[in-house]
Design a protein around this nucleic acid. Sequence first.
DNA 1: GCGTTGAACG
Length: 534
Amino acid sequence: MQRLVKTAIFTANRREAEQSCLALLQACDAVSKLSQIHAHVLKSGLQNNPLVLTKFAATASDLKAIDYASSFLFSGDADTHLYDSFLFNTVIRAYAQTSHEKHKALCFYNVMVQGSVLPNKFTYPFVLKACAGIGDLNLGKSVHGSVVKFGFDADVHVCNTMVHMYCCCGGGIEFARKVFDEMPKLDSVSWSAMIGGYVRVGGSTDSVELFREMQMAGVKPDEITMVSVLSACTDLGALELGKWVESYIEKEGIHKSVELCNALIDMFAKCGNVDKALKLFRNMSGRTIVSWTSVIDGLAMHGRGMEAIALAGHVKEASEFIQKMPIEPNPIVMRTLISACHAHGELKLGESITKQLIRSEPMQESNYVLLSNIYAKMNHWDKKTKIREAMDKKGMKKIPGSTMIELDHEIYEFVAGDKSHRQSKEIYEMVEEMGRKMKKAGYVPTTSEVLLDINEEDKEDALNRHSEKLAIAFALLNTPPGTPIRIVKNLRVCNDCHSATKFISKVYNREIVVRDRNRFHHFKDGMCSCRDFW
DNA sequence: GCGTTGAACG
């Protein structure tokens, strides 16, 4: 190392100095070393050498280091027009690949274009990736314009990233499809991007359909395609298709990457075969945080959906998993485990995990809501009140549940116990009528989920005032018989509303589509597409 | 004068 530094600084031979600098940077792995090497670069007089600068930017592995490298490269006295596209590409790539700094990638792209450095075909995949992360459709469209202007719209890599970019922008899926349809040649990446894009926007049926087209087109899917197809299966609850995908993977000898194993675990868990998911999980090597979350999430869901099978042992198992986890458990895993505890009555365990979670995320309001709900279920009303008081003190509020419905191009929003609507009286009469008809059909209100200290009759009343039921009553009143009803809920749909909606779909012969915070529920003829796992 | 790429799972 010392020898390299010496050569870099004192050699008269420029080529040798350059090689030493590159070797130094090759060996550099920390931000502190990067600043030392920066000093060497300055001493050796190579601070304008494009090769060294590019290596300097490429060496920056974490965010801090990238910031450091880019601030050095593009500091006030830097002559931007001396730099080449390669250097900009390296910086843009570094930012496009880090999760929270996509806008910086675009900043440097702008610096590049304004400094008259021409982008090349390697530039746009990075820029488009950054756009995808930002998810702004208009931004994406303008970059698309530049791609066309510079004539890179014939490059298959650029187009693939463009498809992906449009898929990541709200309302961009049609644009993605247009780019996809106009591509002269499609490779497995193009198909994967489009198939994955449909899954992303909730179009799992289209996704599976496109996968079939891909096979007919004779393009061989790879492990990334299969991950997307499996996500579609998961979303659709299509266990049979999922099993077919698994056997296809075996038959075709597709590489089982960690991500693919995770997708299989997730699919089996959410499509109803939790034992298979557990088996895959146990057999896999190199588990990541996603593997753990998938399997724990799967166990939690089954607790909810299949209380009869008495899985309460799995919660303890999940808790042991977390303790044994080689990776620091993240809040998502913790919250999932807490919901599982809640569903299984493992309240003591839930309480201790939630407290731990609050210590690590004191300002996350949902953690307090979790703890407060656990206390309610334990009948510790005094402790529950204390939590609420603590939240008020910190200026936090529980987000109120609300349901939206679109009718004749107008959007109506209902909150629990809403009386603001002009048809309020009719709506509550309708809710009463719905209740009577549903009970005749066998509906039993799930009062155990009402976390208030009141008697059973009042609990039933509280359930009747839930925003979903009000919105559905409103839709039943104002749309002709047989029209499908579409509603959007900001939080997760509650157990009772889920069960009630199944009955309503049967009794009133309506197809009801509910989008909640997590997923879509398609209710038809007394059944829900989620098969009660959600 | 010398180097870079695309798509994925909770």
